[in-house]
Amino acid sequence: MFEARLVQGSLMKKFMEAIKDLVKEANWDCTGTGISLQAMDTSHVSLVSLLLRSDGFDPYRCDRNISLGINMESMAKIMKCASNDDVITIRSEDHPDNVTFVFESPNQEKVCDYEMKLMDIDSEHLGIPDTEYDAIISMPASEFQRICRDLSNIGDSVKITCNKDGVQFSAQGDTGIGKIALKQNAVIDKEDGQVSIELNDPVSLTFALRYLTFFTKATPLASTVTLSVSAKNPVAVEYRVDDIGYIRYYLAPKIEE
C-alpha cells in the first residue's frame, strides 16, 4: 500500500494552489524517494515539475511504485476542505482505483475522510537536461509576484535582461512601456529579502506574463524564487520548499519572428 502523512498539511494545499490553474490532470508518481509530478500545461508551452521527498512525511510508506492519475480541479476542491492546521494523509492500494485523503485536526477531535476516483492518464514525460545557465537570479518570491502583477498592467510579455548592472524586467503595450530594475544587494549571502545574481553571460529573453503569473501562485510556498535564464532556452522558475522539496516551472521563451 501507499501512505504518506504530512504533518504540515497546509503545504499540500499550497502545492495544489500552485498547479491547479496550470495543469488540468496529471500523474502523481509515488516511489520510495517521494511523490513527484511532471506535467505540461494544456497549451504545452510550460512544464511544471515538483518533488515532495519521502523524508518530509511522517510516516511514509510505499510498497510498490504507483501513479495516481488525478484531475487537479477535483483534488483542489478536496484540499480546500482541509483546514490549514490539519494533518493530511494520502493513502491508496497497490493497484488503486481510488485515492483517500484524510484530514485530522491537531487535537484529533475531527477526522475527515475523502475518497476520490483516479483516472488513467497517458502523460508524456520530458527529459530536462542539466543546463549551464547564463544567469541565475534569486529574489524574494513576493517581489517577483509583484513585478509580474505590475507589468501585466502594461503588456502581455516581459523582457528579462540580466547584465553586470543587475536585472531588468520590462513590458511594452498600447499605453506605453514599463521597466523595473533590480540591483544586486551588497551583501550576497542569499538571505531572505536579498537579490542575488550569478552571471556567466549577459542575457535577454522575452516570456509570456500570463504563464509567469501562473507560476507565482507558488509564492506562499517559499520566501525566495530562483530564475535561471539562458539564451534561447526555457526559463526555470524554482521555489524551494523547506524540508520537503521543490516546485519548478519551465517556460519556453518567445522568439522574435
Partner: peptide, 14 residues
C-alpha cells in the same frame, strides 16, 4: 511579432 514556442521543442520526450 513574437512567436510562442512549445516546451516540448526544448526537452526530449522520454
Amino acid at each position: 511579432c513574437e512567436l510562442q514556442t512549445l516546451i516540448r521543442e526544448y526537452f526530449k520526450s522520454q
